[in-house]
């Protein structure tokens, strides 16, 4: 099967209600509509400033681009990397238009969940998060200039270990109920809405471990067996294969694609013809499941 066959298969369904616009195109002349993201008004008409799909919610019209940097929303789960340790804050690279800010006051520190941060905490900030550390966090608020303020005030969030990072375009990640998933193959996946995905060994946290002062911020990986490494690599490559074919990514899609690629060797998953076949099989399975 080649590219044309995929195209044929997808054509016909849903293609009618996709309204594609390009920059400078008039979306509507009706002044009853409000302008949302990706639009501007000129002479009472609503004009698109992006190439994408028109998204209408009641009277609000916005354009959804299909390839763009991450635009955060409050409550989003993101995966990021510390780029800088500054005064009472960390700067976090999260594939957005500016680095995110993680304030010292928005992290849980060892020894008591809620306590005031004092000067000694400020001095040892680098022992919690140093440059290059990966973390998962939630978008808490936005500053005036559009930079995101993050927080890790939950047991779910915090430093990431025991795994590898996969980066995909942020538009591919679908918003779902949970972005923390444990796959049937025994691998934990954190689907950051910013397009950073953390694939890691599943490590159950026992309550007494969580209370240990060192538990949150230590830098040591658990022992990972060769077999576990292979599964992590397989899941990573499966996600990359989905991204290569611009397919949306959620937990079910990863599971389907993982199953579809299970007969191939890990390194073969990213070969053009094999990845195509895997994505196609997974898509077909997903659509079938949707109809039931």
């Amino acid at each position: 099967m080649d590219q044309d066959d995929i195209e044929m298969e997808i054509d016909g369904e849903d293609s009618l209600d996709i309204h594609v616009v390009t920059p400078g195109e008039v979306v509507t002349r009706d002044s009853a509509f409000m302008r949302g993201h990706g639009t501007y008004t000129e002479d009472e008409t609503l004009v698109a400033s992006l190439a994408g799909v028109v998204d209408r919610v009641n009277k609000l019209i916005s354009i959804k681009p299909l390839r763009t940097r991450y635009n955060g929303e409050i409550g989003d789960v993101v995966v990021g990397r510390i780029t800088e340790v500054a005064q009472k804050r960390w700067k976090v690279d999260m594939n957005a238009r500016q680095d995110g800010v993680l304030l010292l006051s928005s992290v849980n520190l060892p020894g008591g969940v809620q306590r005031r941060k004092n000067e000694s905490d400020e001095l040892q900030m680098r022992t919690f998060f140093a440059e290059g550390d990966m973390l998962s966090a939630e978008v808490q608020a936005f500053f005036q200039d559009g930079a995101a303020s993050l927080h890790t005030r939950s047991i779910k969030y915090g430093k990431l270990r025991n795994g590898s990072l996969v980066t995909v375009p942020s538009a591919l990640i679908k918003r779902t109920k949970s972005h923390f998933v444990t796959l049937p193959c025994g691998v934990d996946v954190i689907l950051g809405l910013n397009g950073y995905i953390w694939v890691a060994k599943h490590v159950p946290i026992s309550p007494e471990q969580a209370n240990q002062p060192d538990a949150l911020y230590h830098n040591d990986n658990e022992p990972i067996a060769d077999q576990e490494r292979e599964i992590i690599a397989r899941v990573s490559n499966t996600i990359l294969a989905l991204a290569k074919h611009n397919n949306f990514i959620n937990d079910t899609m990863i599971v389907y694609a993982y199953e579809a690629g299970s007969s191939h060797r890990v390194k073969d998953i990213l070969k053009p013809d094999i990845s195509q076949e895997i994505v196609q099989t997974a898509r077909a399975q997903f659509q079938e499941a949707q109809q039931h």
Partner: peptide, 11 residues
């Protein structure tokens, strides 16, 4: 290109 992306990214 947008139409082709929309087919796989959105559905």
């Amino acid at each position: 290109s947008t139409r082709n992306l929309a087919k796989t990214v959105l559905h």
